[in-house]
Design a binder for these strands. Sequence first.
DNA 1: CTCCAAATAAGAATTATTATTATTTAGTAA
DNA 2: TTACTAAATAATAATAATTCTTATTTGGAG
Lengths: 149, 149
Amino acid sequence: MESKKLNIITNVLSAKKLKITHQRIVVYQAVMETNKHPSAEQVFERIKDNNPSISLATVYKTLETFVENELINKVSSPGGTMRYDAKRKHHNHIYITNTNEILDYEDEELSKILMNYLNKKKFSNLNITDIKLQIKGEKVNPSKGISIT
Amino acid sequence: MESKKLNIITNVLSAKKLKITHQRIVVYQAVMETNKHPSAEQVFERIKDNNPSISLATVYKTLETFVENELINKVSSPGGTMRYDAKRKHHNHIYITNTNEILDYEDEELSKILMNYLNKKKFSNLNITDIKLQIKGEKVNPSKGISIT
DNA sequence: CTCCAAATAAGAATTATTATTATTTAGTAA
DNA sequence: TTACTAAATAATAATAATTCTTATTTGGAG
């Protein structure tokens, strides 16, 4: 199963004509394995114990390469630093201001409503590439999670 | 009329119990006068010719003071730097990726739809402080403006 | 197996922002 | 008005995040 996962990654990379390197595999895995929207620094922290030779600059560059190849997303956060997340289905973000977390909020119904509404508007000279909702809030109890019904 | 504008500013400042200083008046005016969501650096550029003694650090600190006192907003941008804008009616942002501009998109009807939709959802442990739409796109013709109908 | 364009490591450089500290000033109260 | 004090500012150092540079290494085509 480890090798299966590895296989998926190598396929993804070669589909984008990217050289398959140990660094790229490790960084890609690190971003995929978490839903925590890590910063480059956090990706580096996550991988460095098992891969002490991978440098922070490489992590930055590798992440940037993935963004250019649309394998992951790069999002700005109210905290000021850039955060990365695995590119999956379209989703919105909830910024938790008191813990600096970014949560995903997936809501297909909402996306449809938004699409639908904005399509009726005419934006001249603008080519819209993405529409997402940005919810900002704070955890009432920072040590507990958030659930949505 | 200059003095009238000045009067408005001094009233705003004293309402927040902020000392009325030349630096604050100038920075406040600079942010109010543009709808371009300037960075701290851009505010500095805008004022420095007429106020060569105001330092960049003061601009940063003054803007931060205004944010704390809810006179202006601070928003992150895909470009990575923080941008400021006059706090007015609730509005959404359109990030123009090929020119790095941030446009306002005010739409009360849309806000109501969103509020309404999200109120039906139950987010436990989350105190929502802001909901805004983030539209990303690029100008087809970078030298021209964007109009919305 | 060889070769070369592309990728990486290491660290310097740059950019954005915050912190420090000595000096100045707004507002208050005599 | 003047004197006082807490707050604000100027100048600059420090820090944090990110990008650049360059010498070295390596994946993969042939």
